[in-house]
Design a protein around this nucleic acid. Structure first.
Lengths: 231, 231
DNA sequence: CTGGCCTATTGGCTAGGCCACTGATCCATC
DNA sequence: GATGGATCAGTGGCCTAGCCAATAGGCCAG
């Protein structure tokens, strides 16, 4: 059994420190000498930690200049592959439809009582959020996360996490449309009902309709430069 | 522009050396002191290179023992997340069903003439392969890759690539069953017909049936320790 | 044969130092 | 006044030397 190496701890301390201080891309880390003494490690060890962070793509170390943050933290190759393209929204809809429809069906089959409690809680949170005039972005995310958890598939869950940042962006755009949060909430209710009734087909259909509704926004927005991809 | 760091060169030399000598998982690298002097760098620098290789997952450094190769090179986090579990086959079926069903539907909508040519070619390759008594694993893979390409979605394609190694394993098991390659080929034909006819629903249904057929094997194999996950 | 100890080997980490690169400043030149 | 080169302080890159800690295998006592 290999124990945690010091450089790993240091790397984590650094990332934590970055988060705490709200540092963003382009910001600089303290000089190695200072940072090393502040963390109570040698410069060599700190250097190892920086190598690790550099390999992961979190920072870039520039000789003679300093260590600057990339902000990319550690994005999956999936996300990287799609970020370059400007017309990514349709693709996000496609993959959400593929994954979440299946997830909804599995959730209907496998959900436990606890899963239902979590889903209901997310539903309540979104309702309350909307009552307060919010868009309910976080609650929306919470709901989908709860459904994903109820599907009890690590692989599907991990894949959803990989593209979470992409989905979040589209989610914000969608929920910014007037009347959309209420609409979305109704969609969530239908999905929840089907999951509660343990009806996979209905859950899949409800989720599909929900994702489709979101896609309308995307199409509206992409209308101008829509290409051969007829949907 | 930041020039190449020494540790990067060292890491590359090491990986090259591994390839040249045909080292495999479980093999040991020379001791740090020896390796460092042989590469003409200090132990500190070599240590940085090893950290980089460790972060990438190519090696694991064990205190007091040595540095051993993992052979995993660089697998996606999705794959890593699932490798730990022994009962991964059901989950692979789930995600294949989710992704490939959607991919088939999209392929039916978006396929070009060239896409069809590629799909037909894969079909022919599989047929010929089976005639020769092979299992047609490569041709099977080729077919699914061609369909994925025809869906014209970078995101879905990249996601499929991420879990490709997992699918490949299940594929080999499936096609090893007697009579299975022929069965699989028929499934491919049905999928191809639907895609050629540009019928999304039929393509999705055909792909779903195809994946289900594969899942039968998996269930058969997992029968003994099947848990609450009723399917 | 078993169990515990010893030791050679190997990686973990530190300390201290010199070198190379970067960027800003200052100054001579035009 | 504008331009271009020299300078210098700060920063990372890399090295040497050394001690500490974990591992594995052999040795010895029981």
């Amino acid at each position: 059994m290999t124990r945690t190496r010091l450089y790993e701890q240091v790397a984590e301390q650094i990332t934590a420190w970055i988060q705490q201080n709200g540092l963003e891309a382009g910001d600089r880390l303290p000089p190695e000498r200072e940072l090393a003494s502040r963390l109570g490690v040698s410069r060599a060890t700190l250097s190892q930690a920086l190598v690790a962070l550099e390999v992961v793509g979190a920072v870039v170390v520039r000789h003679g200049d300093g260590t600057v943050l990339t902000g990319k933290h550690s994005e999956s190759r999936i996300v990287e592959a799609i970020r370059a393209h400007s017309d990514r929204l349709p693709e996000i809809i496609d993959i959400r439809d593929a994954l979440e429809t299946k997830i909804a069906a599995l959730a209907a089959q496998r959900r436990t009582k606890d899963d239902l409690v979590a889903i209901d809680a997310a539903l309540d949170a979104m309702e309350e959020s909307i009552e307060h005039g919010d868009r309910g972005v976080d609650a929306d995310e919470q709901f989908h996360a709860a459904v994903t958890a109820a599907a009890h598939s690590d692989l599907l869950a991990q894949t959803m996490r990989e593209i979470a940042s992409l989905i979040r962006e589209s989610r914000i755009e969608s929920l910014s449309q007037p009347g959309r949060p209420r609409n979305s909430l109704n969609g969530h209710r239908a999905i929840t009902d089907a999951i509660r009734a343990q009806d996979p087909e209905a859950a899949a259909a409800a989720m599909h309709a929900h994702v489709e509704m979101v896609s309308d926004v995307a199409l509206l927005r992409d209308q101008g430069r829509d290409q051969a991809q007829d949907r």
